[in-house]
C-alpha cells in the first residue's frame, strides 16, 4: 500500500488491509469491533478518501526511497525502532498473559460493549460528539465554496 505510485491503488489496498484487520479482530473474538471496522473504516472513511482522490484528479507522485538522505535516514530510523519494539515484545513475552481470557467471548459482543459505552463511559461518549461537531463545522468552514 505504501509503495504504490497511484493513489487509487494505494487506497484500494488499504481497504483490503482494513478487511484483513477485521478478520484478525474476529480471531480475537471481538465481533462488534470487527463489524465496525468494516463499516466505518473500509466503508465510510475510505470511500471519503477515494472520493477526494477522484475529485482532485491527481498526477502520479514523484518519490523515491533512496533519493533523499533525510527520508532514507528517517525510514532506517523507523526500521530500527520497529526492531527494538519487536525485541522488547519478545523479551517480555513471559510477562504478558499467555492465553486469551475466558471473558473474551462475552466482552466482544455488541451487548457488552454497548453496556460499557452507555453506562461506565457515558461521559466520554457524549464528549465524542464534541469531536464530531468540531470536525463537521471545521470541514464545512474549510471546504465550502463560498461563505456568506
Amino acid at each position: 500500500m505504501v509503495t504504490r505510485k497511484n493513489a487509487v491503488s494505494s487506497a484500494l489496498l488499504l481497504v483490503v488491509t482494513f478487511c484483513f484487520l477485521a478478520g484478525i479482530y474476529l480471531t480475537l473474538q471481538a465481533q462488534f469491533l470487527a463489524v465496525v471496522q468494516v463499516a466505518v473504516y473500509a466503508g465510510a472513511i475510505m470511500v471519503l478518501v477515494l472520493f477526494v482522490i477522484m475529485l482532485l484528479n491527481l498526477k502520479e507522485e514523484r518519490f523515491s526511497l533512496t533519493g533523499n538522505w533525510k527520508t532514507l535516514l528517517g525510514v532506517l530510523g523507523v526500521g530500527a525502532i520497529c526492531a527494538q519494539v519487536i525485541a522488547i515484545i519478545l523479551l517480555s513475552k513471559d510477562k504478558i498473559p499467555q492465553t486469551i481470557s475466558p471473558k473474551a467471548a462475552v466482552q466482544g459482543t455488541v451487548e457488552s460493549v454497548g453496556m460499557m459505552l452507555y453506562q461506565t463511559y457515558a461521559f466520554p461518549f457524549e464528549m465524542a460528539s464534541l469531536v464530531l461537531i468540531t470536525a463537521a463545522v471545521g470541514a464545512i468552514v474549510l471546504a465550502k465554496k463560498k461563505l456568506q
Binding site: Y121, M127, T134
Partner: peptide
C-alpha cells in the same frame, strides 16, 4: 482521570486547531 478522556480531549483540541 482516564486515558480515554485525555485522548478525546487532545483530539477535540487538535482538530479545532487544524481548522
Amino acid at each position: 482521570a482516564n486515558l480515554i478522556v485525555t485522548f478525546l480531549g487532545l483530539e477535540t483540541m487538535s482538530i479545532a486547531f487544524y481548522v
